[in-house]
């Protein structure tokens, strides 16, 4: 457990190392900020204020239904049907909480749902749509930051986060806060975008920038890899962790349409180290390279979205556990003798 946590920390550090100038990682402070669950976040990768404004914009740019987001929300909620337990009180964190609420349809036996997002406009929009439909569980709305979860300890049965947590600077810290907010035997369900996401755009951006500007700047955020997700869950102290990956390919008419979709989802670049200027020339070159490298026969372009689904529970005595090492009373050679006598 301890060694896996240390390995996770090393991995995280390695992952951030090449992205950040030295001054951000001052000796041990980076490791410390990943460790403490509460007020960490000295390691700043994402501009949370900018992300908040992105989400304000997404609140009005959002489509009524979005095929990709709905598919992810549906997949996430499907997991509730696998549990025999009911979850009377649930917390739904930022990202695509709107579709989660819409697609819930009584699953998981949720009676009270708290919806939280960083953007006040987004929360207001959810409230309007909640008033319009007037079915589903009793809903409450809070403006809050996932990095500073304002939820009482051991108060929730279920925490869902659909496509939101990949924008947190301190993902382990945010997950630890989620675990603390859960009741014992409470369920944590999250979907985050994985490292394979938008690989086509990544390539096209890099080539266009090399070609037009003679160098590259980070246009895309670093995303978690699948192998990190398991470490994250164990690090955050969840029991019975489960990770699985799904890959979606969305087709667009052009690269500009893809960028419009990203804006509508509030998934545009929010790195601190971003280049605030995007030359028209470079943008058009990116679109052209995208089209020529990845374009399909029918003229559309595909974009890959990799979604990592994470499931974890807060520890509880009733959960199954592996036995202590060395606690077995029967030797394996005896078992072999018992069940396979014909081979000798």
């Amino acid at each position: 457990m301890a060694s896996s946590a240390a390995a996770g920390r090393r991995l995280l550090l390695l992952r951030h190392h090449h992205l950040l100038p030295r001054r951000y990682i001052s000796s041990s402070s980076a490791a410390d900020s990943l460790d403490d669950g509460g007020g960490g976040g000295r390691l700043k990768i994402f501009d949370r204020d900018l992300k908040r404004r992105h989400r304000d914009r997404a609140a009005w740019a959002m489509r009524e239904t979005d095929g990709f987001v709905d598919a992810v929300a549906e997949n996430l909620l499907d997991r509730l049907e696998d549990c025999r337990k009911a979850f009377p009180s649930a917390l739904c964190l930022g990202g695509s909480a709107g579709p989660v609420r819409r697609l819930l349809r009584g699953r998981g036996g949720i009676e009270k749902l708290i919806m939280m997002d960083m953007s006040a406009d987004m929360v207001r929009k959810w409230r309007e749509s909640e008033n319009a439909t007037d079915d589903g569980p009793e809903s409450h709305f809070v403006v809050g930051d996932e990095e500073f979860l304002p939820i009482k300890e051991s108060s929730q049965d279920l925490i869902i986060s659909c496509l939101g947590l990949h924008w947190t600077n301190d993902l382990p810290g945010a997950m630890i806060q989620c675990r603390l907010a859960l009741k014992p035997d409470g369920l944590f369900l999250a979907a985050i975008l994985g490292g394979e996401t938008l690989k086509e755009l990544r390539i096209a951006c890099t080539i266009a920038q090399m070609e037009r500007e003679g160098g590259i700047s980070p246009r895309m955020s670093p995303l978690a890899q699948v192998r990190d997700a398991g470490n994250l869950l164990t690090r955050a102290g969840f029991t019975l962790p489960g990770v699985d990956v799904d890959q979606y390919t969305v087709k667009y008419n052009s690269a500009l349409e893809l960028v419009e979709h990203l804006r509508a989802m509030g998934e545009t670049n929010a790195l601190f180290q971003r280049n605030p200027v995007l030359k028209r020339d470079t943008a058009l070159a990116t679109a052209a390279i995208y089209q020529s490298m990845f374009g399909l026969e029918d003229g559309s372009i595909p974009a890959t979205f990799q979604v990592i689904y994470m499931t974890g529970w807060r520890e509880h005595p009733s959960q199954q556990k592996a036995k202590r090492r060395g606690s077995a009373t029967i030797s394996f050679s005896d078992i072999q003798k018992q069940f396979a006598p014909s081979e000798n």
Partner: peptide, 18 residues
Amino acid sequence: GIPQALADVLVCPLSKKP
């Protein structure tokens, strides 16, 4: 005000105190 059910679970985001 805010509904009772919500007030019961909200805490300070920094100190986690009521």
